[in-house]
Design a protein around this nucleic acid. Structure first.
Length: 585
DNA sequence: GCCGTTTTCGGCCCGACTGTTTTCAGTCG
């Protein structure tokens, strides 16, 4: 069983216990275990083998034993016992907004409702008549909720929300009487997917702002619009809506509100605990001691009062950030990025020419780029056969001589074949300036095979980076099973970089994996895999992911100068297979 | 079920909104 599967079992147990009406603190402890394991970068099986399960936060002896049992037998007796009492199909009802465990229990015990279909049937036939808490308005709300569940399975990718959020924020900020408008929530934290969007606004006349917001082009439904809060659905594409909540808050408590609504929930719980230890209270209006307001105007004030540095939103996940004495001054920013080492042109499956890509990159202020076309076996992507690559090398070199103001390298995104060999012979790879090797086909379920394949590629002296290491497509295709720890260690040993593919559909490595890889000594390259000039700007999403991984400037290959990157390349060719002796920069 | 500089018991984050049970439980973020 992998981490996600174990986490799922614990989350399910928490839900079942809650429907059963068990003590909420016990329920929460199961939920905490689920989250800890779900967030874990290392393989839970390895921790279990080393007997280190109980060292995880929130995991005590009881949970450690249960995890062990689950890994060994694939079953958890507690879960089986619960499912004998509580129908598992009830869990789908919890996904309906406004329906929680108490209502689910009531529907089940009083009306025999066991599934989403049962519930729809019960509403249609009026069976819920007279049931406590199920008046006309509640039923209407539930019906809308069911429709929402059926329509919006899964969360929205960060990139899909980006444009609409930045557009609405800019427009709100331009309204008369609006001091500022900012996104909060998981969007501000840069999570790879988001549930709904939270926006905050400082304005004199809240009602007027909310009215404007509700009347926005693109709004397909207004869920609520009052004096301080509005809630709407906007259509991202046909059949796909996104909920956006806007709150208008006074300037004097903006910092408290922004902190509060940015979350994460877990980060905020820890902050409130810190406040409580000092005899204070923290909520969306401020940090207070009785009636006295200690801090509320800015986030910085609140963190400072609690003895903390201002913590960047990307770090607010209760992953150790509250123990920070100071946030590293060189935490990665977009301005640190000097180039992009993974992109395509019309030579394979891109949409723009070498010159166009170079010009766009120069406009972004880059010092260098590398053109990396697909290799022969990526037929669908119009991969280059060896003779074509030889010609392409000439073409890029010629273009590079014509183009001023930016260094243009020629590389490849070479396929890693099923047996771990590469799609081009070494002597051809040796002619290139930078080689990214990626798996595009045959992503099987076999962890050992996938890992072997990746390690083999890294052991080639001409491979400088592994592209989108797990091959996932967010909301579309799961990551292939891969031993990230082994890959990271080999990357460190061989002087090979691991990519954070910045495309918002990939973000691969993901945050927790990138953090683990860096901790194990691997260098990270953040690249867009752009297939058109506009996509070079997706770098932003890679940087956000890297910040969520706590990466610093020195951890990232393409924050270095062209000369330093060239040194990285020659070092790999010289030292391949031997323990790495590169300096840490 | 977890946890500990109030430590092996007794807590465990905070407040708003909603519907409706008309005084508060349930849900949500």
């Amino acid at each position: 069983m992998n981490n996600a599967e174990v986490a799922h079992v614990f989350a399910e147990v928490a839900d079942l216990l809650e429907i059963k009406g068990e003590d909420s603190f016990r329920v929460n402890s199961y939920r905490r275990v689920a989250r800890t394991i779900g967030d874990l970068a290392a393989d839970i099986n390895d921790l279990a083998a080393r007997g280190e399960l109980a060292t995880l936060p929130g995991v005590g002896k009881g949970s450690a034993d249960k995890i062990q049992q689950l890994l060994e037998t694939g079953r958890l007796p507690l879960r089986d016992e619960l499912l004998a009492e509580v129908p598992g199909s009830l869990l789908q009802l919890l996904r309906i907004p406004s329906v929680g465990p108490k209502k689910v229990a009531l529907l089940w015990k009083e009306r025999g409702v066991q599934s989403l279909n049962d519930l729809k049937g019960a509403i249609a036939t009026g069976t819920l008549e007279g049931l406590k808490g199920f008046g006309a308005k509640s039923i209407e709300q539930i019906l809308r909720g069911i429709e929402f569940v059926e329509r919006s399975a899964g969360r929205t990718r960060l990139g899909d929300a980006w444009e609409v959020v930045t557009r609405i924020c800019a427009a709100l900020a331009g309204l008369k009487g609006v001091e500022r408008a900012e996104p909060a929530g998981s969007f501000r934290r840069g999570r790879e997917t988001i549930g709904d969007i939270d926006l905050l606004c400082v304005a004199a006349d809240g009602e007027a702002v909310i009215q404007h917001f509700a009347a926005w082009p693109g709004v397909v439904q207004v869920l609520g619009a009052g004096g301080t809060k509005g809630s709407v659905l906007v259509e991202l594409r046909p059949g796909r809506t996104l909920q956006i909540d806007l709150r208008v808050v006074p300037a004097e408590s903006f910092g408290a509100a922004w902190q509060y609504f940015t979350g994460s929930k877990e980060h905020n719980i820890r902050l409130r605990e810190l406040a409580q230890k000092r005899g204070w209270s923290l909520n969306e209006y401020g940090l207070t001691e009785g009636d006295r307001v200690i801090a509320s105007r800015t986030e910085e004030d609140i963190y400072a009062a609690l003895g903390l540095p201002w913590i960047p939103p990307e770090l607010r996940e209760d992953r150790g950030e509250l123990e920070l004495r100071a946030v590293p001054g060189d935490l990665l920013t977009r301005e640190h990025i000097r180039g992009d080492l993974h992109m395509h042109t019309v030579a394979s499956d891109g949409h723009n020419t070498i010159e166009e890509m170079a010009a766009a990159a120069r406009k972004l202020g880059y010092e260098y780029i590398c053109i990396t076309e697909h290799s022969a076996s990526s037929v669908i992507a119009n991969g280059l056969k060896p003779p074509q690559l030889r010609q392409h090398i000439e073409d890029v070199r010629a273009a590079a001589r014509r183009i001023g103001g930016i260094t243009v390298w020629v590389g490849t995104e070479v396929d890693i074949r099923t047996d771990g060999t590469l799609d081009y012979p070494d002597e051809l790879l040796a002619e290139l300036d930078f080689v990214t090797a990626s798996i595009h086909a045959g992503m099987g379920p076999d962890l050992a095979a996938n890992t072997r394949r990746t390690l083999a590629a890294m052991q080639n002296p001409h491979v400088h980076c592994i592209g989108h290491p797990t091959g996932r497509l967010i909301n579309e295709r799961d990551a292939m099973p891969l031993d990230i720890e082994a890959v990271a260690k080999e990357a460190a040993r061989t002087g090979t970089a691991l990519e954070i593919n910045a495309h918002p559909y990939r973000l691969d490595l993901k945050d927790q994996h990138a953090r683990l890889a860096r901790d194990l000594g691997a260098r990270i390259a953040i690249c867009t895999d752009a297939h058109a000039t506009g996509q070079l700007e997706l770098m932003h999403f890679g940087v956000v992911t890297a910040r969520r991984a706590w990466l610093r400037r020195g951890d990232v290959l393409n924050t270095q100068t062209a000369k330093e990157v060239a040194t990285f390349v020659t070092a790999k060719r010289r030292d391949h297979g031997r323990p790495e002796i590169r300096d840490k920069g």
